[in-house]
Structure formats: C-alpha cells, structure tokens
Simulated scan of single mutants.
Amino acid sequence: MSTDMIAETEPHLDLSKVGNDAEFLMEHLAKRYEETLLPQMMDEDLPAGVERGLRVLVRQLARAQADLFVMKSAVLGRDRLALTQDWDYVDPLRAQFDALGTDMAAMGPAAFGTYVLKPDESMLGFGWHETEQKGSSSWRWSGPAREAGIYLPNIAQTPCKLVLVFDVLSRDVLPTGDFLTVDGAPVAHELTWSGDLSGRIAIDLASDSPSFLLGISLARTVSPEKLGIGQDKRPLGLCLRRIRFEVA
C-alpha cells in the first residue's frame, strides 16, 4: 500500500505551489491535523486558561507533524522509504496519517459520537479537482478520470459508519453495483438520496489500521457544458461535501 500511495499521490499534491520552503504543504497538513484533534480535547467546562493552553499545544503538535512529513519527503525523496525504530519501512505520507490515527486512538472511541471532515487542500488522494469554496463551505469534485481515492486517518479506531455526503450532475454517474473499496477490498454501501442530485453513501468501517485508502470507481464523469447546464468544461464525477465518522 505504501508503494501505491507514493505512486498515486505524488502528481496530486500540487507541489508547484509549495516553493523552496514547502510552506503550502505544511500549512494544509497542519490544518487537517489540528482540525481533527482539537474538537476531541475541548470541553465547555474547561477553564479559559486551560482551553487556550490546549489550543496552543495542539497547534504546535500539528505544525510539528506537518514539518516532519515535509522534511522526510525532502530528504528522502518521494520514491524512498523511511526506516522506523521497529525496523519497518514506511513512506512519509503513510507516517503522517498513522500518527494522526494513533493520536485519535489514544483518546479512546468514546471521545466522540460523530466527527466530520471537510474536503479542502489538505485532503490527500488522487483523482480530484482543486478545492472550491463559498463562505465557510468547501467541496471537491472527482475527475477527470472515473477513479478517485482519499487517504483518511482512522479517527474512530472502532467499528463505525463512514458516510460521504455528496452531489452529482447526473445520477447515472454512480454505478448500479458496489463501487467503493477500503485498502483495495470491495465494500458494500447504503445509498440514500436526499434530493434529485444530492445524497449520502454509508459503509461499515471495521479497519483497525491507523489510516486507510477509500477508493471510488464511478460509471462515468461528465461536464456541465456537455449537459447544457453551464460553461464548465471539466469532466466531473462525485462532488464530496462532507466525510462523517458515526460511532453507534
């Protein structure tokens, strides 16, 4: 899986935006790490001083993890592997997500009932167009290929529902059978439509790995221009609005 992550993700990290100091990549990796950890540590009963201190510590931890990832990538190269203290080889990208999953596991599965991740520039994967945003909302369209994937930290660390909240331009973008995989293994899904072109897809997630690859294989992609509903010429598949982890 590490080899696949390196080969598939490298063209989609948009390293042209990084520059010599890798500021772009570090900023967005740190943002994802901070947004994932912080809600699990906040409580309305915490004294103001303690809350401020926790926010500072989590922000520093998030930045440190992102810095380490980028430094490993720069020193080792995207096609090289890092040797861990247990004499196992892992690539820097996998190490970043394993670290986040391990930290979430330490908090225990009872830390939350539902957790939501927003698609943004820190979403690592392949087969996605750039992030689009309006106000506080962000979303990403898959495309131009039918296949796409997302590397996710295993936030729940316990069996749960993984829910994708999505839009499509046409319902026939979605295949009639199963089209999702977890680490390459096909998984059954529940599809619920909340509108003509909006809905949610739920799968039972039972992975005990700190991170996993969610694969998506659509029937087709199509552009708004071809459908006669806009001037956008990009082939679009699934518009990902939210990723939800729901613990029973």
Rank of each mutant, 00 (worst) to 15 (best):
D172Y: 12
L205D: 01
P224V: 03
D178V: 04
M42I: 12
V56A: 10
V247G: 00
T3I: 11
M41N: 02
F179N: 02
T158G: 03
F112S: 12
L15S: 15
P210K: 08
T131L: 02
L169R: 04
R32M: 10
R55T: 01
R242Y: 10
P210Y: 09
L61S: 12
L37R: 13
P39V: 07
D21G: 05
E35Y: 13
H189G: 03
N154C: 09
H189L: 15
E147R: 14
T84A: 12
P153N: 08
L240P: 00
L191V: 11
P47L: 12
G19V: 05
H12M: 06
G177Y: 08
A106Y: 06
A66I: 05
G184L: 09
V247A: 07
S142R: 04
D43S: 13
G184A: 08
D167E: 14
L162H: 10
M42A: 12
T181L: 08
V222K: 08
D183M: 05
K226L: 04
P47Q: 14
V58Y: 04
D14I: 06
Q231F: 05
L205S: 00
H12D: 06
T181M: 09
T181W: 09
R140A: 03
I216A: 04
L76R: 12
T9E: 02
E23I: 07
H189R: 15
L38V: 07
V182K: 07
I203K: 09
